[in-house]
């Protein structure tokens, strides 16, 4: 049963974007003073807060210590008010622990952890409003927070989703499109080298379409990286004015 029409004959999506257009991305770095790094990011109506602590010595079990690099600890959570219906979201449910794991993998690939052996980096992200593409918004926000904390990375990690409707790849899905029943592919990319930090797809897709879909997702990631780069530069400018350099 066909639900709503995700892509009209004229090439418009539900919210008026064309297939390759991203949602509006807005971000601010350094929103909290207490943490080592923090960032707030809006990707369309998905709003995320990311906070980074560290690198600091490993807390808790000493067995976690890695002697050649830093441990990255990620925690993902959603605010109770983040969705249309208010819902209590206990910590450690399956979905968020999976998401935490994904974030961890992504940042282990991007952060130069070997510079900080025997230490730990904590990344906390919280979804304030969920409207599709939660994972990618989290990665993008966390990247900014890590940069804000001054932790060296190989490159920006930019993430974006892409879906496939009527043989056309759609970039950056919103909630309505994600729940429309199609495929959704999430990519986290290190844009300069084109390395993929994480690739995730749950639904089925014909193999032949994979390339076009990947292509679309990677183009979208590069678009996001430009925005993030601008945000970082602007932030630095503001900071340098503040510090009077």
């Amino acid at each position: 049963m066909a639900g709503i029409e995700l892509l009209s004959d004229q090439g418009y999506r539900l919210d008026g974007r064309k297939a390759t257009e991203l949602r509006k991305v807005q971000a601010r770095m350094g929103v909290f003073g207490q943490a080592d790094g923090s960032a707030y990011l809006e990707q369309g109506n998905t709003k995320v807060l990311a906070v980074v602590y560290g690198p600091h010595e490993v807390r808790g079990a000493r067995s976690k210590i890695l002697y050649d690099r830093a441990v990255i600890n990620c925690q993902y959570s959603m605010a109770t008010f983040s969705t249309a219906e208010r819902k209590r979201r206990p910590h450690g449910d399956r979905k968020s622990s999976e998401m935490s794991l994904h974030l961890k993998q992504t940042f282990e690939a991007a952060v130069l952890t070997q510079l900080y052996p025997r230490s730990q980096i904590d990344i906390y992200v919280k979804i304030l409003q969920a409207d599709g593409g939660n994972y990618s918004a989290c990665v993008n926000a966390a990247t900014l927070a890590v940069i804000d904390a001054g932790i060296p990375m190989r490159d920006y990690v930019c993430a974006c989703t892409a879906g496939f409707v009527d043989d056309t790849p759609l970039a950056d899905l919103c909630h309505a499109e994600e729940s429309g029943g199609g495929t959704s592919l999430a990519v986290a990319l290190l844009p300069r080298g084109g390395q993929i930090a994480l690739l995730q797809m749950d639904a089925r897709l014909h193999q032949d379409h994979l390339d076009t879909l990947m292509e679309a997702a990677m183009t979208a990631c590069k678009g996001v990286s430009k925005v993030l780069d601008e945000v970082v530069r602007q932030h630095l400018q503001e900071m340098s004015i503040l510090t009077g350099e």
Binding site: L14, R17, E21, K24, N45, A84, E85, C174
Partner: peptide, 9 residues
């Protein structure tokens, strides 16, 4: 349910 959707012009 109150749903907020983006709308791009």
């Amino acid at each position: 349910v109150r749903v907020v959707r983006e709308h791009y012009l």
